[in-house]
């Protein structure tokens, strides 16, 4: 069995926002919608302040709270562990959005919102609406670039190893802080990293078993 996951090495992250921008660009995400975020914080007091960077995205949890909360079954977990949303079935109740303890879902309310207010949708935005037809009135979130994974697998490529089958945020990361692969394969790069570099999940107390791990030290 396959379970796709990601490891983010916080020691390598330089806070360049390339993951956020590439995700937004690749999925033609509308204004104010981010599937990837970079959380920036500080610890300590002057003069010994440490800046901390946490790139966050949907954790594609094994025990996803959103999947259980969804009253219609629009949010579901695939066999390969990806948590996906069927926009045709979403009723827009936003219970999943409330239930996600990591706050990684967004309600897409206005399909006519422009990047340049008052100037209409640009050609690029119109193409985006054709290629990625998000439905206003539904909830959206990171899908681990499942279309790339599925198309890549169909071509015999390996997600995580072949760029064409790998999430764009992983490809775009300049210091290669992100690694993608199969969590269920003990010999995969991602499993080795988690094992040897002590990969940690965010907030394990919620019991959701996220598929995104962080290397902190």
């Amino acid at each position: 069995m396959t379970r796709w996951g990601m490891v983010i090495d916080l020691r390598k992250c330089v806070g360049c926002y390339a993951c956020m921008v590439s995700c937004k660009q690749d999925h033609f995400l509308p204004p104010n919608i981010f599937w990837n975020r970079l959380v920036v914080g500080e610890t300590g007091k002057y003069p010994t302040v440490t800046k901390q960077l946490y790139p966050v995205l949907c954790n594609h949890c094994d025990e996803a709270a959103c999947v259980k909360a969804c009253p219609t079954g629009a949010t579901s977990k695939r066999e390969d562990g990806l948590v996906s949303i069927n926009y045709d079935e979403c009723v827009g109740c936003r219970y999943c959005l409330i239930a996600c303890p990591y706050q990684q879902r967004t309600y897409y309310s206005n399909g006519k919102k422009e990047y340049f207010p008052g100037q209409g949708l640009t050609e690029l935005e119109l193409i985006g609406q054709e290629l990625y037809p998000l439905q206003p009135g539904t909830v959206v979130k990171c899908n681990f670039c499942m279309e790339r994974i599925d198309q890549g697998l169909a071509k015999g490529l390996i997600p995580g190893a072949d760029r064409e089958a790998t999430p764009v945020c992983v490809n775009a990361c300049p210091p290669k802080a992100r690694t993608f692969g199969d969590l269920d394969d003990p010999d995969s790069e991602i499993s080795t990293l988690i094992k040897h570099r002590k990969g940690q999940q965010l907030h394990t107390e919620y019991g959701t078993d996220p598929s995104v791990y962080y290397i902190i030290r």
Binding site: K68, A69, C70, P71, G73, E89, C90, V91, G92, C93
Partner: peptide, 25 residues
């Protein structure tokens, strides 16, 4: 009125096994 897609409200009947929202409906 709160639902983003109110015409699909009947879909909320479909997953009472896990969702309290569906059960409530």
């Amino acid at each position: 009125a709160y639902l983003g897609k109110p015409m699909r409200f009947w879909r909320m009947l479909l997953k009472p096994q896990t969702s309290w929202m569906a059960r409530g409906f």
